[in-house]
Computed example of a mutant assay.
Amino acid sequence: MKKIFFALPGNEALTKSLTEKCGAESGKATIRQFPDGETYIKIESDVKDKLVVLVCTLNYPDDKLLPLYYLSETAKELGAKSICIVAPYLAYMRQDKRFLSGEGITSAYFAKLISSFTDYLITVDPHLHRRSSLSEIYTIPTTLIHASDVLSKWIRYNIEKPLLVGPDSESEQWVSEVAHQADAPFIILEKIRHGDNEVEISVPHIEQYKNHTPVLVDDIISTARTMIATIGHLKNMGMKKPVCIGIHGIFANTAYSDLYTAGAQEVITCNTIPHISNRIKIDESIALLIDRL
């Protein structure tokens, strides 16, 4: 089946790379806002009987969801054989239970909505906490890419004597995997969260790694409070300046600059969300999966 790729606004670089790697057609579409804020969609390429791949990372999802939905529905009405959404960052995964009476379980609602207008979903390391797989809430075929391979390779070739540091017990499984592949030791922080912006950190057994470069790894860097608190502890213990690595760099408010102010040597992310910190590419992994559709 012929494939044609469309970039939602802000996803042009990744879409161009994926289109070239898959030897596919680059689709043309107009997506803009009317003066009243409503979304205008026009597909200018022939999509009939083709697999339409819509590339749209879903940070700040509320602004992106309607254009994505409208583009998918328009492609179907114009004869597309099937629709695949490539969302390197998948939003609304954290609210996976009703923590307080009256709350909405928005991860399930979002999954139901996405499943209603696409045939396939490809994403990178979604925040699966209390769920074992996306199939618990998504009713379409979903494929997950794990960034551990590209992270470990980057660490192995760019950092001398790395010590991987996981943010909490939940991260131990994938941090240990990255450490193993990078041939590096790792430790897991002991963390007590007192609120959205207040975290108490304990760094166990750090004394034996004084000659290593700490590498703080997390799946999502949002407020960066955990990393900033950890940097402070490492500094007090006389450790080298750490390298901070995240799969998904959301960087809420001033989080990115705050990390450097706190004493980070470098802040590195995968290109799942476009940002100046993108140094680790996941293009090849995504392209391989798309070729199998």
Rank of each mutant, 00 (worst) to 15 (best):
H180L: 14
T143A: 09
L58P: 00
Q208I: 11
K210C: 01
A287I: 10
F34H: 13
E198G: 00
D49P: 04
E207L: 02
D63L: 06
C84A: 14
T39G: 04
E73P: 00
Y120N: 14
N158V: 11
S101C: 06
A7Q: 01
P61R: 00
F251S: 08
R130I: 00
R225L: 01
T57P: 01
L121P: 13
V267G: 07
Y256L: 15
I231Y: 10
N59V: 01
L293A: 10
Q265K: 15
P35S: 12
V175P: 06
T123K: 09
T74N: 03
W154G: 07
W154M: 05
L289P: 04
D49C: 04
R279N: 14
S107H: 05
L58S: 03
G263N: 13
I140Q: 07
E190L: 08
H233C: 15
H146W: 03
H129W: 09
T142R: 08
P88V: 05
M239G: 00
S116L: 05
K210Q: 12
I145M: 01
A111V: 10
D62G: 00
P67V: 03
A184Q: 12
R32P: 02
A224C: 12
I221A: 14
S176A: 15
R131G: 01
N236Y: 02
I187A: 07
E200G: 05
T226M: 03
D96L: 11
K28Q: 12
L68K: 00
M239K: 11
V150M: 11
S152A: 15
S222M: 12
V86N: 06
Q95P: 04
M1P: 05
K97L: 08
V178W: 06
V86K: 00
E38F: 10
T261C: 10
E177A: 14
N271L: 13
T272Y: 01
L18P: 13
D291F: 04
T223S: 15
Y120G: 06
A224L: 05
L293Y: 14
R98W: 05
F6H: 01
S72R: 01
G166F: 10
I31G: 00
H146Q: 12
L289C: 11
Q265A: 15
N253R: 11
Q95A: 09
P167G: 11
L289R: 15
I114H: 03
P274K: 14
T19W: 08
I41P: 00
L289A: 13
K16I: 10
I159S: 07
P35V: 08
K161L: 12
Q265V: 02
I268N: 09
C56R: 02
M239I: 03
V267D: 11
V165N: 07
